[in-house]
Design a protein around this nucleic acid. Structure first.
Lengths: 120, 120
DNA sequence: AACCGTGCTACAAATAGTGTAGCATTGTCA
DNA sequence: TGACAATGCTACACTATTTGTAGCACGGTT
């Protein structure tokens, strides 16, 4: 998979509008999960595997490469950690944590309305 | 693909913490892109296909089903539109639009440091 | 030298996404 | 009424991505 560098053609946009590059990036499985888990502090490769419960090393490595190339994370002696930009990104997204609880309460409140089966 | 209902086991978390369900959801290709494009107002299925430049009807339909089940969008006479919750989600994420420009400028500024090839 | 723990790769199987074609339904309008 | 167009959406074959397990290569320790 190519790295969604803003300004180049990315999945979902030939114009390469930065937001589209960003949405391509975060639309990749685990990308946000990795950043989210790095909030708790730097982690080694294996530590990250644990924090992300069920990530495979292949995909962890792919995402790390992409996030590194896009300068959202960096490797220090203590392991992988958020870069300045990565921190900014996470802090924008941070309110999602609290919002998701409210959303979850609302959803399970009217569970009976959901069609959970046959989603594919 | 199963719908990442908070409270159930989702990709990346057996505990089903709401934030993990949410990250699973937005980590799916096009999920955020669809919500983003709905900001401009309601759209029919075909209109959405156009706004999302290159989405296939199969995946558009899958994402719409998921987003509907999770009550982030709803269908009205004018087409698909953001629900109240969907609007909240998007407004949290909205600052990403501006941030992505800054990020893009910074990235292209030190382009020579990137290894763009061989990312996979 | 034998033993860690590390980052990371190989590889086959499973899963997800793409792109084109087109079906079924509804609403127009002659 | 019947041809036509637009809609939501599915079929299907192909390709791309992810998963999960195994394990290699390297740099410390003991």
């Amino acid at each position: 998979m190519t790295i969604p560098l803003p300004g180049t053609q990315v999945r979902g946009s030939r114009t390469g509008k930065p937001i589209m590059a960003l949405l391509d990036l975060v639309g990749r499985n685990w990308a946000l999960g990795i950043l989210w888990n790095l909030q708790q502090g730097p982690a080694t490769f294996r530590e990250l595997q644990l924090r992300c419960e069920k990530i495979s090393p292949t995909i962890l490595n792919n995402r790390l490469k992409e996030l590194k190339a896009l300068q959202l994370i960096e490797m220090a002696s203590s392991g992988y950690q958020l870069s300045v930009a990565g921190n900014e990104l996470i802090s924008i997204i941070f309110p999602l944590g609290e919002w998701s609880h409210k959303w979850a309460r609302q959803l399970t409140g009217d569970e009976q309305k959901l069609q959970l089966k046959g989603s594919r």
